[in-house]
């Protein structure tokens, strides 16, 4: 678990073929700041910004973070209009993110986020 109160530790899992976009690695452990820029800019920290509008880190920020720092190829297959592309499911601590407020869910230290693609055929 994270020792710094300004950051939080998360476990990310990819399934259903989505891992192919993330260097074919199914499980990732990442650290993100607890407070993030309101515009989801993942290249600056809240400390750098001149007059930062900030908010607590939520799933929407996490998606931007994954896109900017972990995604290796074909961004259009992962995100669309600021959220995950239709056909990608998100589980937050083994629960459908639709029950948790989707992108507005405020992340907590130690949360486990699973992203599963349904686009690999049937």
């Amino acid at each position: 678990m994270s020792t710094d109160s300004n950051t939080m530790f998360l476990k990310i899992e990819f399934g259903g073929g989505l891992e192919l976009l993330f260097s074919n690695q199914r499980s990732h452990r990442i650290t993100i700041p607890s407070t993030v820029p309101a515009d989801n800019n993942t290249s600056v920290t809240t400390k750098d910004a001149a007059s930062p509008a900030t908010r607590p880190a939520d799933v929407t920020y996490l998606l931007h973070h994954l896109r900017d720092h972990l995604l290796k190829e074909r961004e259009e297959l992962f995100m669309e209009n600021g959220t995950v592309r239709p056909g990608i499911l998100v589980l937050i601590n083994d629960t459908d993110w639709e029950l948790e407020g989707e992108g507005e869910y405020l992340l907590k230290d130690g949360d486990e986020i699973v992203l599963i693609s349904t686009l690999h055929g049937g």
Partner: peptide, 26 residues
């Protein structure tokens, strides 16, 4: 037999049962 089961339910079944999805050439 899955004509009443959506793709979302399939994906969650596969995840919770730990099924390996080979993927297909679509």
């Amino acid at each position: 037999p899955l004509r009443d089961v959506g793709m979302k339910e399939c994906a969650i079944w596969a995840w919770w049962c730990g099924l390996r999805i080979v993927g297909r050439e679509r």
